[in-house]
Design a protein around this nucleic acid. Sequence first.
DNA 1: TTTTAGATCTCGGAG
DNA 2: CTCCGAGGTCTAAAA
Lengths: 231, 231
Amino acid sequence: MRLVIAKCSVDYVGRLKAHLPLAVRLLLVKADGSVLVHSDGGSYKPLNWMSPPATLRTVAASDSELEEGVLEQWVVQSTKQDDKLIINIYEHIHESTHDLGTDPGLIKDGVEADLQRLLAAQIELLGTGYTLIRREYFTAIGPVDILARDAKGATVAIELKRRGDIDGVEQLTRYLELLNRDPLLAPVRGVFAAQQIKPQARVLAEDRGIECRTLDYDAMRGVDDSASRLF
Amino acid sequence: MRLVIAKCSVDYVGRLKAHLPLAVRLLLVKADGSVLVHSDGGSYKPLNWMSPPATLRTVAASDSELEEGVLEQWVVQSTKQDDKLIINIYEHIHESTHDLGTDPGLIKDGVEADLQRLLAAQIELLGTGYTLIRREYFTAIGPVDILARDAKGATVAIELKRRGDIDGVEQLTRYLELLNRDPLLAPVRGVFAAQQIKPQARVLAEDRGIECRTLDYDAMRGVDDSASRLF
DNA sequence: TTTTAGATCTCGGAG
DNA sequence: CTCCGAGGTCTAAAA
């Protein structure tokens, strides 16, 4: 990994065009040829970047016609796509290179799969008398998150999201259409369960007879403290 | 901006939990307190991070009970949310600090908004006699990208995407259902316009009577050269 | 401030 | 390989 602090301007030409005026920035060159251009603020997304695999070619001012004041130019070319990043360096402020080795990678806990497990274990949260049929009920067009039975014995298909968006309602609608063709299951009701449900998604869901439920995952996690076993 | 190369382990606790085993990584501390943990590979997303605003507190091994071999511990706490990043440093390999100043920021060209502006100005690209009704025509379920009238005076709803996917066809279908309930507008045709249209999206669109059009952004920008004044 | 939809999305998994 | 869905999404614009 190579770290450079430099006064530079940056241009990206590829799927779109983007330009960064002259300023001091961090240029981070990774072992796979990818380059990140970071300023001293903002979140983790760089101002500009080149995805790997890529190759970095350095053009010296003495070798070529560069703009006035440019010490050197970096041409970062994506190997797979027709994407190019051009960095004009006007002043080198810092330079260092380090061997990091390969990273063992990230271990995660608490994503949608865990929330699905929690709701399956506390299925009565959706209503008294609810019982679980199964999680990940497979259909021809994909798995239904949770299939359950309500107090009256009717089948209920549950789509689970962290944030309930229109896309999720569409997804559940497709499942319901399919499930309701199965005489052993029909009639199947739909429940759209999420931490937050967007107004537009709620309108669409209720227009289609799909029940909307907001879930308090923190409370659910508190009931089932096996979620904290990992750490 | 502070750059540290260190052998470290990292734990994030917040909306989820995530753990990084011991390895050599780049730790990037920005002026707003945000921290990025990068390895020497992958794309621009850090292995782990803390979003700004945040505060970094350093705990020395002499001041506290840290695990065996830990020289110091960084506790990065989000100011706004209950998110915490804990970095245990086992070995300092590099350290440097730089003053970057504020960045003038990125100038973009070629995103969906540009495409929409260009197509609105050159609406006759869709067919002779087409006229613009308006961009961002608001409905109860969201804005239609462009509403136009064809040579015969019929209303046309246009959904614009950079990459035409099934989602975009579904979106346009919803708009068409709604618009066709309005007797002042009905009948409304649909046009799905994108730089590229995925085969599955094209099949679905045409099955629903929606016309597909691919757009040449470069050519459209060439006609309206106000877009090129930026560079 | 909150909401909404795009993104050079990135990233991982399934087929 | 492509396609699809999730994300500690991030980001900017609009209400």
